[in-house]
Simulated assay, not measured.
Amino acid sequence: MADTFAPFTAEGARPHEAPPQRAPAPPAELRFYLTEEYHVPNGTLLGFWLYLMSDCLVFACLFAAYGVLGRNYAGGPSGAELFDLPLVALNTSFLLLSSITYGFAMLETQRGRLGATQGWLAVTGLLGAAFLAVEIYEFAHLVGEGAGPQRSGFLTSFFALVGTHGLHVTFGIVWLVTLLTQLRRHGLIPENKRRLMCLSMFWHFLDVVWIGVFTFVYLMGVLP
């Protein structure tokens, strides 16, 4: 009887059969790499908080200098003779109101209302400009009376502290105008919302510093 079984090859198939097809290997995993710089979530806010802390040190040094030199009149006028408290109170109200209007702008930002956000920011900028106008008038009046920063240690520290704060307000207004331009061009995109938040922290920080200036410099300065 003839052998009806054909031998198997090493692959396990009969000689007259094609070897079994192997399944194709899965494609290698594709990996994509960022072609631009990676932005850490909330990294901007953290960096801005660090900047505000460094600015706190600057104002702390200026307050300390005024605390040391605030009674060194060198035979010149004192704060009680120079300061006009009603004018300073009006100036303080301008800055505090600007902080409130900026808060309204942030509320409108959260609601997605671009026009209302721009309107409240414009009011904030006008109040900040009014604050600067009154401060410049005060400085000009003091210099006109011969009470410039070179007159005494008291006036040197006064102009340094109040002038530095006014310079910060000036930069804040420039920043605010720039943001209004960005909002008009691009709307309430996430980047603009982040910038608005940073400016909000900066603006409120200036209000807190001014409360210290108003109390420590003006109110205590009129005391005998």
Rank of each mutant, 00 (worst) to 15 (best):
E36P: 00
G70N: 10
W175C: 04
L95E: 01
N42I: 00
A116D: 11
P26G: 03
F171N: 06
A89T: 05
L107H: 14
L57I: 12
L180G: 14
S200L: 05
Y38L: 09
F205V: 01
L30F: 00
R31F: 07
W175N: 10
Y137D: 10
A89C: 03
G125K: 12
I136E: 15
E37T: 08
Q110V: 14
E135A: 10
F48K: 07
R184C: 07
W49A: 13
F139N: 03
V222K: 00
V174M: 13
L30K: 14
L62I: 13
S54T: 04
L82W: 04
L219A: 06
A18F: 03
G75H: 12
G67E: 02
S98W: 04
P190E: 06
Y102K: 08
F104P: 03
L161D: 02
Y218I: 06
G47E: 15
D55L: 05
L132W: 02
G144K: 15
A23H: 01
D3P: 01
I189L: 13
G115V: 15
W210G: 04
R151N: 04
V174I: 10
V213Q: 02
G12I: 12
N91I: 02
F32M: 07
F154R: 03
A130I: 07
H186V: 04
A60C: 13
L85E: 05
Y51F: 08
G76M: 11
H16Y: 15
R195F: 07
Y102F: 11
F171G: 09
G115L: 10
L188Q: 00
M201N: 01
S93A: 09
D55C: 09
F48C: 03
A10H: 05
G12K: 15
G128R: 02
L196R: 02
L114I: 05
L114K: 09
Y137V: 11
S152C: 15
Q150F: 13
E36W: 00
H39A: 15
L179N: 08
P149W: 03
L161A: 15
G115I: 05
A13M: 09
F94T: 03
P27N: 11
L155G: 05
V143D: 11
E145F: 12
L87S: 07
F48R: 07
V213M: 12
L219G: 06
G67I: 00
E11Q: 13
F32A: 09
C198Q: 10
V169F: 06
W120A: 09
I189P: 00
L179G: 02
S152M: 15
L142F: 15
V208H: 07
L52Y: 09
L34S: 12
A65T: 07
V209F: 00
L90S: 14
T164W: 12
I173P: 00
P224W: 04
F94Q: 05
W120T: 01
E145K: 14
I173A: 12
G70W: 12
L196S: 00
G125Y: 03
E11D: 11
F171K: 11
A80S: 09
M1L: 08
T101R: 14
L219F: 01
